[in-house]
Nucleic acid binder design. Structure first.
Lengths: 191, 191, 191, 191
DNA sequence: GATGAATGAGCGTTCATTCAT
DNA sequence: CATGAATGAACGCTCATTCAT
C-alpha cells in the first residue's frame, strides 16, 4: 500500500471534520487520527492550525474557480455567461456539500473578513471572472451601475443562502429550480 | 435587591466581544471582566453560556422585528412594503454594526440552523411579516412563484452580504445606494 | 404563622440534603433555599459549613444516645442490656434513615476520624453506656477480654452494615431478624 | 512510546491523596503535581476522574481478592476457611493502610452502593469465595441460617471497623489479637 | 437581625503544540 | 522524516462566603 502523500490525507480529514463539526469540533488530534498520521506530523505540513485552515480554504477556492472557468466562454453574451457561472457555482455547492459547509464556516469567521480584505486589494483568478463579467456588464449597460462589491453581493448572497438551505433540507433544489433561481439573481443585477 | 445594571453590563460586554471575536473568542472570564463583574455573576443571570447567547439573540431579534414593524403598513402595495422592509433591515444593520456581527455569528452556528428550522415550522411575529408579504406577492402575481424559502434567500441573502461589506468597509452605503440596492433585490423577487 | 426559629429549619434542611446527596451535593445556597432563609442567614447560626456539619452530627449523636438511654436499666443482666441497646440502635437506624445516612457520611469523612479521636480522649454520655456495659461484661467474665475498642467494633460494625443494607434495600429487616442479628452480635462479644 | 511509569505514578498519587483527603480533597491538579506529571497527562490514562477512581478500586479489589484466594483451600472445614479468610483480609488492611483508606472512601460513596448492588446480582470471583463459604456454612449447619447479606455484614462489619481503628491508632492489633478477633467474628456467624 | 446579590478561587476537563525517540 | 506521549494554559462552571442594604 503506497502512501499517496500524507498531506492529502490530512487535508481531507481536516476538511471533513471541520465541515461536519466546525472549527472547534475538529481538534488536531482527531484530524490526525482520521488522516491516519501522528499528531505531530500535521505540523510538518502546516505551521499551525490557522495556516492549515487558510490553506484548506485556498484549495477549495481554487477548485471552485476551476469549476467556474470550466465551460466559461468570454465570447458569449453577458447574461448567458452570468447564468452559466451562477448555475455552476450553485451546482458545485450542492454537489459538494462538504466543501460548501467548510467554505461557510470559513467565510463566517475572523479569517473570512481578513481574506476578503486581501482579495479586494490583490487580484485572484476566480474573482477576476466576476470582476470582468460585472465590468463588462456595466460597460455594456446590461447590468445596473453599482460598485462591484454590491453587484457581487446581489449575485452571490442568494447563492450562499440557497446552497445552505438546500443542504439543510429546507428546500430541494432541482435543475429547473436552480435555473429559475439564477435567472432571478440576474433580474437583481441586470437592467 | 439585584442591580439590573449588571445584567445590562454583561449583555453589552458579551454582545461586543462575541461580535468582535466570535463565540470562542469571547470567554466568560473576559466577558465578566469587560462587564466589570465577577466571573460567577454572569451565572446569576444566565444558566450557562449557551442560554446567554440564545437570550442575546432573541433580544436582538426582537429589536429588529420591532424596527421592521415600525412604519409597516399592510394596506400599501406589495412592492412598496418590500422596499420599506428591506431598507429598514439594511439600515438597522448599518446603524447597529455590533448587533449585525453578532447576528451573523449566531446564524452561522448550530443554534442558527435549529432556530431557522423552528421558524419555518412555527409562527413568529417578524417572520410572519415576510411570510405574509411573500404569500401576498405570489397570490397577487407580482412576485415570482417560488417556494417561500427561495424568495427569502433571494431577498435576504443580498441584505446580509451588503450589511457585512459595508461594516467591513468594502463599500460605503448611503441612502441612495441602499434604496437602489433594495430595488435591485425587488427585481430579483418581483415579476 | 410564627417562625419556629430559623435554626431548626436550617438544621432540618441541611440534614435532609446531606443525607440525600452527600456533603458536596448540598451547597449552602440550596440548604438556605430549602430552609426558607437567606443564604447569609446560615452564617448567623454557624461560623461556616464545617461547623454546621459538626453541630448537626452532635445533635444526631445526642438523639441516638437519648434513644439508647431510654429503657436502659443498669440492674438487668449484661446480655439483656446488650440486646436492648443493640436492638434500640438498629431500630433507630431503620426508623430514621435520614439520620442514619447523615451519620454514615459523617463517620466516613475527615471529620469522622477527628471526632472519633476526640471521643476516645474525653468522655461522653452515650459512649459511657457502652463503656460501662463492656467493662462490666469483662469484669463479670460474660464478655471476651478484649480492649474496649475491639468490643465496640465487634458489636457496632455489624450494626452500621446492617442499617446500610436495609436502607439500600439489600435486606429487609423485620423485628425477628433484628433480634436474631443482635443475638449474633452478642455471640461475637460474649463468652 | 508511552512510559508506563507515569500511569503508576498517577495511580499512586491518586491513591494516596484520596486515601488521605477523600475524593474532593484530591483535585486532579494536585494528583498530577504529586505524580510529577502535567494535569492533562492523567487524561491519557483515564477518561475522567470517575473512571480513574473506579479503575483504582477495581485494582485494589483484585489485589485483595488475590490475597484472599492465596492459601484458600476448599477442602478444609468451614470454620478454618473462615478464620483464614478473615485474618487474611484484616492483615491486608493493616499492612496496606493506604489501600484500606481508599476502599473505605469508595465503599462509602455513590459508586460503593452501585458496586455492591452489582455484586449481589452478578458473580465476581472474590465475592464468590464468601458466597460459597456462607452457603456451605448454612448447608452444613455450622453457620446461622441468615440471608447471605446479613452474614456478610456480621463478618465484614467488624473487619472494617477493626481495620479503621488500628490504622487510626485507636488499637494496636498484633497477630494474637487479630486471631482472637476473627474467632469472635466466627462466634457471631457460627452456631 | 436578615437578606441574597456578588464574588473569585478553585474545580474537572480540553487541546494546540512540542520534542525525545 | 514521522511519531504520539506529554504538556499546561485556558475553558465553562460551582459554591462557600461576604457585606451593603
Amino acid at each position: 500500500m503506497p502512501k499517496p502523500d500524507k498531506k492529502v490525507d490530512i487535508v481531507r480529514a481536516a476538511l471533513e471534520l471541520i465541515a461536519e463539526n466546525g472549527f472547534h469540533g475538529a481538534p488536531m488530534a482527531l484530524i490526525a487520527e482520521q488522516a491516519g498520521v501522528g499528531a505531530g506530523t500535521i505540523y510538518r505540513y502546516f505551521a499551525n492550525k490557522d495556516v492549515m485552515i487558510a490553506t484548506l480554504f485556498r484549495e477549495l477556492e481554487d477548485r471552485l474557480n476551476a469549476a467556474i472557468l470550466d465551460g466559461y466562454e468570454t465570447g458569449t453574451p453577458i447574461r448567458e455567461r452570468f447564468l452559466h457561472v451562477g448555475a455552476t457555482v450553485l451546482h458545485y455547492f450542492i454537489d459538494n456539500p462538504t466543501d460548501f459547509r467548510f467554505l461557510e464556516q470559513f467565510i463566517n469567521s475572523p479569517y473570512g473578513a481578513a481574506h476578503r480584505r486581501d482579495k479586494l486589494l490583490g487580484t485572484q483568478e476566480g474573482c477576476d471572472v466576476f470582476k470582468e463579467l460585472f465590468e463588462d456588464g456595466i460597460a455594456q449597460q446590461v447590468m445596473k451601475d453599482f460598485p462591484l462589491v454590491i453587484l457581487f453581493d446581489l449575485a452571490f448572497g442568494p447563492l450562499l443562502a440557497l446552497g445552505r438551505d438546500h443542504i439543510l433540507g429546507f428546500v430541494s433544489l432541482d435543475d429547473t429550480l436552480i435555473e429559475r433561481a439564477i435567472e432571478a439573481c440576474w433580474d437583481g443585477v441586470g437592467r
